[in-house]
Amino acid sequence: MSDHALPAPHLLVVEDDPGIRNLLLRYFSHAGYLVSTAVTLTEVRHYIENSEISIILLDLMLPQESGYEVCRYIHQTTNAPIIMVTALAEIQDKIAGLNLGADDYISKPFDLAELEARVRAVLRRGDRPRKPSSLPDEYVFGPWKFVPAKRALYRASGVRLTLSGAETDLMLVFWQHQNTLLTRPDIINLIHGNPTALEERSIDLLVSRLRRKLAEGGRQLELIRTVRGDGYIFDPRVCIP
């Protein structure tokens, strides 16, 4: 192996079913990933505190804590992206998971090749090279400072709001296309390079999450305006008094 070879991505599988857990361990280990497994929040906390986790596959139906509780902890303590892998396939379950900061969602039973493709896609989003000549380190509008490299929004008071990888991608797309009507396929294409890579409904969920984080004193400014039937327009001038 070359001295300059990149380390294998460290995948943490949080799954209580031993059959699925071992299947994912074998499959992703064979695919070149460093794989760890966990069942409880205590085990998840151990890996996050002692390892550099690249991505997490999270089951929602765990024996001790709710998967949503584990997701909330992960999102508050690390920037590692989360793909929820669960038998809970109802739309409200997906909405709840995405609202907590999950980057993607796949229902059981799943195809291993599709799951691996989703893992690669999420990791690519995090590793996407930036253009130093055209992308500043931070973006300031009104009381907000957006720092893509840290996946964060900062208030003028210094309060930090952590963004998921998907929220960061969306915020960056909006900033780079200010005052421009973007349809849902436009947004999906700008993030993933393919207008059909996600369900359009997922963009509505992402926009809803981002709007809540941009709320001013509980009041949501019209920074992201919905154009009914067409898409969204991001207008940072709304913050100018």
Rank of each mutant, 00 (worst) to 15 (best):
S107E: 09
S107Q: 06
S107R: 04
K108D: 01
P109N: 02
D111M: 01
A113C: 02
A113E: 14
A113N: 10
E114G: 03
E114W: 05
E114C: 04
L115I: 01
E116T: 04
A117S: 15
A117C: 09
R118K: 12
R120V: 14
R120C: 13
A121D: 03
A121S: 10
V122A: 08
V122T: 15
L123W: 12
R124P: 07
G126I: 03
D127H: 04
D127G: 00
D127Q: 10
D127K: 05
P129W: 05
P129L: 08
P129V: 07
P129R: 09
P129M: 06
P132E: 13
S133R: 15
S133N: 15
S134P: 06
S134R: 15
S134I: 12
L135M: 11
Y139D: 07
F141Q: 14
F141M: 15
K145F: 00
K145T: 15
F146Y: 15
F146R: 08
P148E: 12
A149M: 07
A149I: 07
K150W: 04
K150N: 11
K150C: 07
Y154I: 08
A156I: 08
V159P: 02
V159Q: 12
R160E: 11
R160T: 08
L161Q: 12
L161I: 13
S164K: 06
S164Q: 06
G165R: 01
G165V: 02
A166C: 03
A166V: 02
T168N: 13
T168D: 07
D169T: 03
M171I: 02
M171E: 02
M171N: 00
L172N: 03
L172A: 07
F174H: 05
W175K: 05
Q176I: 04
Q176W: 01
H177R: 15
N179G: 00
T180F: 02
T180V: 09
L181Q: 04
L182T: 06
T183A: 15
T183W: 09
R184M: 14
P185V: 13
P185M: 11
I187M: 13
N189F: 06
L190E: 10
L190S: 10
H192E: 13
G193R: 13
G193P: 12
N194R: 09
N194E: 09
N194M: 07
N194Y: 09
L198N: 02
E199D: 14
E200F: 04
E200G: 03
R201D: 14
R201P: 07
S202T: 12
S202L: 09
S202C: 05
I203G: 05
I203N: 00
D204A: 02
L205I: 11
L206N: 05
V207G: 04
V207S: 00
V207W: 03
S208R: 04
S208A: 00
L210T: 07
L210N: 08
L210D: 07
R212W: 01
L214H: 00
L214E: 03
A215V: 02
A215L: 03
A215P: 01
E216T: 10
E216W: 11
G217W: 01
G218P: 05
